[in-house]
Design a protein around this nucleic acid. Structure first.
Lengths: 156, 156
DNA sequence: CAAAAAAGTTAGGAATGACTTATATTATGC
DNA sequence: GCATAATATAAGTCATTCCTAACTTTTTTG
């Protein structure tokens, strides 16, 4: 399909950096290494290292002291990752009724090991269920009631 | 709640070893290092190393050349991990209608980063949806139809 | 029961990944 | 042009995970 030589595969941590690049660009039109360092709570030199790795794999344009930007491929992948993150967060929070903080945190970890096909299907499930609710609170009421009952009977 | 000193936390790989120990015990009543080596496709010496690490963290009873068994804590944790694995596999395969191989593979990766609370809730969702189906094929028919429609309209 | 085979252990080391601190370099605002 | 803020590089730490090779213990079996 495309030019994947298998050395442009991303580790979880590099995915986080790439995701952060896009997120900061969206937020404020441009990225500086410092923004990423702050956002991910790492040193500036870690950021430099990560950016070099991302550039070597073809996801960003990078040259010392120059402006950072995403390549086409990088934009595609970063958008995918950010998308996964958002879908997962929503699924956990709105559908499983997990408390927002934990939903976010869990999404963060899982976004790295979730194949596209599975994410697509999860998106489908989410809209399938949500679309079939009459009013916006119906799901949360029904489902939390069901969970409570389950817990009661399982602890008996 | 209990005596967690933070050095008994398990990496994804150690969780895999621990899970394998339990799985083999269930399958054939006892574990030999070789079973684990075969199952995880690693060398025998890697298994020794992992078993020592698991013992140091209090999850298994281990002494050179002796029988391997789970501690109470180890059994608890291993059961949890295996449980996560199974729920996730089922959820992917039966609910999201993912092909069994990919369902299994994805579950394998995700089981390590899924908090208990989220798994519990996912279990609830699974039974909530499945219990509300009249016949066993209802879900798969309804949901796959919906997905097909979604894909058609999104590719227009 | 003793040798051979199988299983398990140990030592030592390589590769990787993700960080760090400390020092140098560049860019920019004034 | 110079100070300072931002970046980059060098060099090294630390933890994981795995390997091979050589050794020891256990098991099998003639």
């Amino acid at each position: 399909m495309s030019e994947h030589f298998d050395d442009n595969k991303l580790s979880a941590s590099l995915e986080d950096y790439l995701e952060a690049v896009l997120a900061v660009i969206i937020e404020k039109k441009a990225v500086r290494a410092k923004d990423i360092a702050d956002r991910l709570s790492v040193s500036r030199s870690s950021v430099t290292g990560a950016l070099q790795a991302l550039a070597a794999k073809g996801y960003i344009h990078y040259a010392p002291y120059d402006v950072i930007s995403l390549t086409d491929e990088g934009e595609k992948v970063a958008t995918m990752i950010l998308g996964k993150h958002n879908i997962l967060t929503q699924f956990f929070a709105k559908m499983l009724l997990i408390e927002p903080g934990l939903a976010e945190e869990t999404a963060c970890k899982m976004e790295h090991s979730m194949p596209e096909e599975v994410i697509e299907r999860l998106t489908c499930l989410y809209s399938f269920i949500m679309d079939s609710q009459k009013d916006p609170n119906e799901w949360s009421t029904k489902f939390s009631d069901y969970c409570k009952k389950q817990n009661k009977s399982s602890k008996a």
